[in-house]
């Protein structure tokens, strides 16, 4: 099993690569700790010394200002030193290049690598080649997973909705190419969500996705009926060139989230989006900026959740010791 790589020999989480294979207890611990990390943002000094003297490298082979910035803020609030490397230009012969790059950085005593790459499995590959004291966090790998995004989404849902066992959640858009959707589906499943719906054009729904325990809809109006949470996905515009969707107008007409469509959901529905949003393509501005939208809160929550995940993978090298009073 691939996902076993993220545990050390004592069964503790040492990398954060995928949601798949984690249990409810681990997810809940991360979410609970994130609640405490939220309060640090409210203090005069928004910093705790947990990772003082540690070094975190943001290694992004694919641009993402938002994700990289929240990782950077999260690490700085934990007092770690942060180095940002935008390595998107080093793309020839990549497998070898990435390993070389990361070994060089590891030789400089890096403790945590945050990796974003457009190839699925990059963070797994690196985790396999790292010594035990180095920790890898997946910040999105190809079409595979984006586990920290899913965790901040779960955190945001939990802050507004309490018990997953009562929830109907809709994930809307390009499910096929979305690492965010994949991580969300796993996380929602592990947390015991009552009804997970995926909604999108048939060309953008993976075959056999029902095996993940979700209900599929290609009609947005039907799928949104009575849901408590709507999670929109960002439509990658390059999909249009591949003829998977007809045109942006047509897409918005059938799958764009408008105020009228939000009315089909529960009156207290919350609307989320991982950003950056395409206004007028997958979501109408009035919804994105409307009272049900939590899109900006997601960004804030992302900092606390990433702090919690960093603390989790760095958590005690020797946990059997009792604390001194």
């Amino acid at each position: 099993m691939k996902s076993l790589i993220q545990f050390d020999q004592d069964g503790r989480l040492t990398h954060f690569l995928t949601i798949r294979g984690l249990n409810r207890e681990t997810l809940s611990e991360i979410l609970d700790d994130a609640e405490s990390f939220i309060s640090i943002g409210e203090r005069q000094i928004r910093k705790v010394p947990l990772l003082r003297g540690r070094t975190l490298v943001n290694l992004f082979f694919e641009d993402s200002t938002r994700t990289r910035t929240t990782f950077e803020i999260a690490a700085k609030r934990l007092s770690a030193d942060v180095i940002n490397l935008n390595a998107s230009r080093l793309s020839t012969n990549k497998g070898e290049r990435i390993l070389d790059t990361i070994r060089t950085l590891e030789a400089m005593h890096t403790d945590i690598f945050v990796i974003r790459d457009n190839a699925s499995g990059t963070s797994h590959l690196l985790a396999e080649h790292m010594p035990p004291h180095v920790h890898i966090i997946n910040a999105g790998d190809g079409r595979h997973e984006h586990p920290t995004q899913a965790m901040l989404d779960m955190f945001t849902i939990r802050r507004h909705k309490k018990d997953f066992g009562d929830l109907r959640v809709a994930i809307v858009g390009d499910i096929l190419h979305s690492r965010v959707a994949r991580s969300q589906i796993h996380a929602l499943g592990i947390l015991g969500t009552r009804d997970i719906r995926v909604i999108g054009p048939r060309t953008l729904l993976p075959t056999e996705i029902e095996r993940l325990g979700v209900n599929t809809f290609s009609d947005l109006d039907e799928g949104l009926e009575g849901v408590d949470v709507i999670m929109m996905l960002r439509l990658q515009l390059e999909r249009m060139e591949g003829q998977l969707i007809p045109s942006s107008q047509e897409y918005f007409r059938r799958y764009g989230l408008t105020t009228e469509r939000v009315r089909r959901a529960d009156p207290d529905v919350i609307v989320m989006h991982p950003g950056p949003i395409n206004r007028g393509l997958e979501i109408a501005s009035e919804v994105a900026d409307g009272e049900n939208s939590l899109i900006l809160e997601q960004v804030t929550n992302g900092i606390a959740v990433r702090m919690s995940i960093m603390a989790k993978v760095m958590d005690g090298q020797n946990s059997s010791q009792e604390a001194d009073k």
């Binding site: 309060s39 705790v48 010394p49 760095m314 090298q317 946990s319 001194d324």
Partner: peptide
Amino acid sequence: IDISFYRDDFSRIGLHPEVKMSE
């Protein structure tokens, strides 16, 4: 207050299993 984030033994024993809110 919960002092978990300020302990000097995080690298040895990690976070307390249930970090409480500081208020």
